[in-house]
């Protein structure tokens, strides 16, 4: 087996006296779809923030494609190929659907400020190229009709979808999805599951999925890591996890002896 794409090695992060994540290790291989679950406050979003450079681990190592990401600014980590969505949607509210995705193409620009001001043929060619890329992505996720709409006016499910599109526009090797099914109705959830699997296949990127909805997680993940109080209590296939007594105890509590 090749070296994993992402590797967390005994990662610990401490906020004052609170150990939010302790000695966490797991790996994600190229193109894998991995779930990360756990009760509320287990530290799932903190793990995302550690991987994307929002927080720095107190101890341990995080390597992406064989290079450490610890201590790098988030934008640099995104440039290396990790993109994310947010638990509470963070689109750019004043920008249109098109511009939200266009902004994510910013880091791949070959021409900088001087070209934006001189407006030469190279600039126009690149802007047209970006427009084509954005429109292609919007087409795939059937958001073409909403191109010029204010992103805030979209229905909730579409906003979540747009966040995924925007993350994909950075051309990631690893996509982190933070509770994409939150607030969705069953039909939307079913759509989302199809969408995530489709994304993984079409764009060939690995996916790390944080999700509360067990149906979604169990339905699409190849492997699942379970967190409780910042520690990993189980890892395995959906079937293994479903029958793991420690996982059941973490979610439902222990039976009285």
């Amino acid at each position: 087996m090749n070296a994993p794409l992402l590797k967390l090695d005994n990662v610990t992060v401490q906020f004052g006296g609170l150990k939010a994540v302790g000695d966490l290790s797991f790996t994600i291989g190229e193109g894998e779809l991995i779930g990360l679950i756990g009760p509320n406050g287990a530290g799932k979003t903190t793990v995302f923030n550690l991987i994307t450079g929002v927080y720095e681990p107190t101890a341990g190592a995080i390597t992406f494609a064989n290079k450490s990401v610890v201590g790098h600014r988030p934008y640099k980590i995104t440039a290396r190929g990790i993109a994310r969505t947010f638990q509470n949607i963070r689109l750019f509210p004043s920008l249109s659907v098109f511009d939200n995705v266009r902004t994510a193409c910013n880091m791949h620009l070959r021409h900088g400020i001087s070209h934006a001001l001189a407006r030469g043929p190279k600039f126009s060619a690149e802007e047209r190229e970006i427009e084509a890329t954005v429109m292609e992505l919007l087409e795939i996720f059937s958001l073409t009709a909403e191109r010029d709409a204010a992103c805030k006016s979209l229905p909730y499910g579409d906003q979540r979808r747009l966040e995924i599109v925007r993350a994909l526009a950075t051309r990631p090797k690893l996509l982190l999805l933070d509770e994409p099914a939150a607030g969705m109705n069953p039909t939307e959830k079913a759509e989302l599951m199809k969408l995530i699997r489709f994304t993984q296949e079409k764009f060939g990127c690995a996916v790390l999925l944080v999700e509360h909805d067990m149906k979604v997680v169990m339905g699409i993940c190849q492997r699942i890591n379970v967190l409780d109080y910042g520690r990993k209590i189980a890892e395995g296939t959906p079937t293994e996890i479903r029958n793991d007594p420690k996982v059941i105890a973490a979610y439902l509590g222990k039976e009285e002896e």
């Binding site: 988030p74 934008y75 947010f86 902004t103």
Partner: peptide, 10 residues
């Protein structure tokens, strides 16, 4: 609009 999201978009 959103500094955290902007950083996350590279």
């Amino acid at each position: 609009d959103d500094e955290i999201a902007a950083e996350a978009m590279g």
